[in-house]
Design a protein around this nucleic acid. Structure first.
Lengths: 345, 345
DNA sequence: CTGAAAGCGCTTACAG
DNA sequence: CTGAAAGCGCTTACAG
């Protein structure tokens, strides 16, 4: 949509360079079947007319869009400012990885309920899909199965499980939970509460729960007690509410392992409001290491997921899948980041 | 790129519905020139074959992509986790606004030095550009001028200035700064420091400086003193360093107005490290109201910019421009959000 | 090494 | 109201 002058096409370039339009295309695609001198003339014309290949036309012809779509699922609370910072950080790294691989990234925020499983690849806007977002896994499993069945190219960020439809890249949540549990045990904590849904609807949170539980047992402690577990989705508000519920139960606890940093931060706020000192009375460990974690009061000990690596791996895996190369689900290791909230140092 | 079966085209639909391919296209484009009964048959076939219009083909034919591109400029420190949260929040609202208007959003992170001014619209991937990011304004002014001259459709998030090339949507930074200054004056603060670059290279920060300065003078105070101003780009590290520099100067100050929340949060960390209590010794006010602000220690008083509204306005303005309708630069009002860091309440 | 030609899947005058 | 046809700007066998 140039207003002043209409933009140059390959025909214009061909004309100026004194070759056929087909040759222009060959040069631009980097075909080896072109005389160097011819190539030079074409490139000169390209430069002079500031020509750029029309990607819509080439996409139509090649049946490749050169574009990936990122579908970010969010909870049904579409408050702009409250997108989970962890996903925003993933978005940043995915964007960069796409750029490195010469692909564009179409971004769409979806409600879990939407009919997203059909839309993107089907309208040929993207060559493949990256699925990102927490959510009730059981609820959308059927959609994933349908994607697989349709032959849609997609990679999912999420728990890597044996019976998973499609390919997933995810953090090793069991190991991450284990790091948290072992750390709390080393700090001498005995009664650890877990904030976050620990059912098969939230496999990521469940894995974190199990890892932590195992670490506690290995340290000779009784492990996580079901009475000290409170469901919470990943938000500051839910974390606050869960901590209040926990305290109302009246059972003693000296540590909280929150399934995500947002939950942890909300929980710390609730603990402070009820006069429980973090970390003296209660040690708190989160998960994700969102930017906010280091600025929390006190700074939050948490489990770091390498989003840069994750973004790169998601894009790489998807591209490989599109090229019909073999791909596999991968788990990324987690790292413990110790700060004040867990009472160490 | 279906692997199993190749996808249906409008020809398949035409065949199944017993009409011409042209008629299928008419139905799908919502043309009124179609017999209701014919329309019904076509839609039935569309449904049955799960047909979706190929957007590449329609884009090529109509010369419209139905896509907007968001170019997010970042400082040359491409650490994934450190994208300014304010821009991430804008990204969220822009994505949503695009969806509401039936457009896709291509996202690209650019270095300020890149040759972005040509790439996107020129390769016809997008109908228009949204430019987002802090940055040295004078340095890329010439690129904006070139965009205007090329007739490229674009809208910029940034300071609304009289001699601006193109259309800008921005926060009323002078008013925002004024809110901060007036609030600090009401709290009885007399010597206010300003952290952030206050030159024409950073017109947004400069406007915030001026608004604050004016408010202080209106309150009968001497205004912002140049000796209490320290340059800082928008990052936590820069804020920390700037506050250290400020303290090293040894001049008394009882308040800090930081040009952004990240700067404010870094400054609060430095103040705490040097034994200055916030807010008793020093009141701190930031700008942006990023999610982190409420979790800072103490919670940060700041100036809120309405990112939801901003995203909607950016998209709406750009779409209007693409349709050749008249558009104009707009300033959005800022709001003061009072929290503990400024000593009120 | 190069050109002429077909065709990717649509949209839209044009003619009925 | 509908169909036949041209054409958007490319890529790529095919034939030289």
């Amino acid at each position: 949509m140039r207003s002043k002058k209409s933009r140059a096409t390959s025909v214009d370039i061909a004309h100026r360079a004194g070759v056929s339009q087909a040759t222009v295309s060959r040069v631009l695609r980097g075909s080896p079947l072109v005389n160097p001198e011819t190539r030079r003339r074409v490139l000169e014309a390209v430069e002079a007319l500031n020509y750029k290949v029309d990607r819509r036309a080439s996409a139509l012809r090649t049946q490749r869009a050169g574009t990936l779509a990122l579908l970010l699922f969010e909870d049904p609370t579409p408050d702009d400012s409250h997108i989970n910072p962890f996903f925003l950080s993933m978005l940043g790294s995915i964007t960069r990885a796409c750029a490195r691989h010469g692909h564009d990234l179409l971004v769409s925020f979806q409600q879990l309920s939407d009919d997203w499983h059909a839309d993107y690849e089907d309208s040929m806007k993207a060559d493949g899909l990256i699925l990102l977002g927490y959510g009730d896994y059981l609820a959308y499993r059927s959609k994933l199965e349908r994607l697989v069945q349709q032959g849609t190219h997609f990679v999912r960020w999420g728990p890597v499980l044996p019976d998973q439809p499609g390919v997933s890249i995810g953090c090793d949540n069991v190991q991450g939970g284990h790091l948290a549990g072992a750390h709390l045990a080393r700090q001498g904590r005995k009664r650890v509460a877990f904030l976050g849904g620990a059912s098969s609807h939230c496999p990521e949170f469940l894995a974190r729960y199990r890892g932590c539980d195992a670490a506690l047992r290995e340290a000779g402690l009784p492990g996580l007690h079901p009475d000290l577990q409170v469901d919470a989705e990943s938000s500051e508000e839910a974390g606050h509410a869960a901590a209040v519920t926990l305290m109302e139960r009246g059972l003693p606890f000296d540590a909280v392992f929150a399934a995500s940093d947002l939950i942890a931060i909300g929980a710390m706020r609730a603990l402070a409001e009820h006069g429980r000192h973090v970390p003296w009375d209660v040690a708190v460990v989160g998960f994700d290491d969102i930017p906010m974690a280091r600025f929390a009061n006190p700074p939050l000990t948490t489990v770091y997921q390498d989003t840069s690596r994750a973004g790169e791996l998601l894009v790489e895996t998807l591209l490989r899948q599109i090229r019909d190369e073999p791909v596999q689900s991968t788990m990324l290791p987690a790292t413990l980041v110790v700060r004040k909230s867990s009472g160490a140092g």
